[in-house]
Simulated assay, not measured.
Amino acid sequence: MSTINILGIDIEKSTFHLVGHDSSGREVFRKKLSRTKLILFLANTERTTVAMESCGGSHWLARKCQGFGHKALLIPPQYVKPYVKTNKNDFIDADAIAEAATRPSMRFVSIKTESSQVISVIQRIRSSYLKDRTACMSRIGSILLEFGMSFPKSHDKMKAIFQWRIAEHGEPIPPLLLLELRDHHDYYLKLNQLILTQDKKLKDIVDHDERAQLLKTIPGVGNLTASRCLSDISNAADFKNGRHLAAWIGLVPRQFSTGGKPRLLGISKRGNKGLRELFIHGARAVLVRPKKAVAI
């Protein structure tokens, strides 16, 4: 085991495929382990470099490796693909990860802290509530349309749907359908409360973080954007300057140059979609209403 210079791990839900390379790049180790046996293996292995793709569970495993004294490296999956040889299987993937990690020009992903991942969970749950609320409003609107009523797309109207029906629309609704609408409307109101709860959690995190307060001094940046930066940007030192960060988010022009002729297209839309969306919404708010813009 002392000959292993770098260990590539292909991560799955319950099993892990390991391939070890020596200092010259030759394969000297190959094994398939369960999650429990993997932890025992890493704890009893001499200190080495452990590489894996940046995917679900990789940040947790990387922190475990660091706790055992190993050097953990996370690689974006798209940078591993060119090193996959011939057919694809789990051991070939692990071998490609080990080889990609040895490249001098390889770009690695910074390991997220536990608190950053918790913020990501809060944001994902909030996003799921937003999607459920949109779907709930669409269902109520489609139900009413089946009975001859075109419901306006507005949260104010949705919150007072029954007053709207009586005041602005005289179409009768069957009693059983009215009960179904009431149940669905209660679900809509519950989702509103759940979203507000998630917003409060994010606000509390931002209020107690010095970096987030500094981010909020930027026009258009509010609790959502600041908390997203805390969760998604593991280490600001990974970026040489602001333009590099903008390129990582996908806000810089996409380049398609050839024959010495530079050609810049629209924004690349690469990288972090959620963070890019928040920055664009914040910029739009500042441009449209510079004096009354609401930070996002």
Rank of each mutant, 00 (worst) to 15 (best):
M1Y: 04
M1K: 05
L7P: 06
T15N: 11
V19Q: 06
V19N: 04
D22M: 07
S24M: 12
R30A: 11
R35A: 12
L40T: 15
A43C: 08
R47T: 11
M52R: 03
E53Y: 12
S54W: 04
S54E: 10
G56D: 11
L61M: 12
A62Q: 02
G67D: 13
G67Q: 13
G69I: 04
G69W: 02
G69N: 06
P77T: 09
Q78T: 09
K81H: 07
Y83F: 15
Y83P: 00
V84N: 04
I92F: 00
D93P: 10
D95Q: 08
I97R: 06
A101F: 05
P104L: 11
F108K: 10
T113W: 00
E114G: 03
S115I: 06
S116A: 14
S116H: 01
V118E: 15
S127M: 11
L130V: 14
D132N: 14
D132K: 03
D132E: 14
R139L: 01
S142P: 04
I143V: 13
E146W: 10
F147W: 08
P152Y: 10
K153V: 14
S154T: 09
H155V: 09
K157F: 12
Q163D: 15
Q163G: 00
Q163Y: 07
W164I: 04
H169T: 12
H169A: 08
H169F: 08
E171D: 01
P172Y: 07
I173D: 05
P175V: 09
L176I: 05
L177Y: 05
R182F: 00
D183H: 02
H184P: 00
H185D: 03
Y188M: 05
K190V: 00
L191V: 04
L194H: 13
E210F: 03
R211S: 11
R211F: 06
Q213Y: 02
Q213S: 06
L214Y: 01
K216T: 10
P219E: 02
P219D: 06
G220P: 04
G220T: 12
G222W: 08
N223L: 02
T225L: 08
S234Q: 14
A236T: 06
A236G: 01
D238P: 05
G242I: 05
R243M: 04
H244R: 11
W248R: 04
V252S: 10
R254K: 15
S257C: 01
T258H: 00
G260H: 04
K261Q: 14
G266V: 01
I267M: 07
I267F: 03
G271K: 06
L275Q: 11
L278M: 12
I280K: 08
I280L: 10
G282S: 13
R289S: 12
P290Q: 12
K292Q: 15
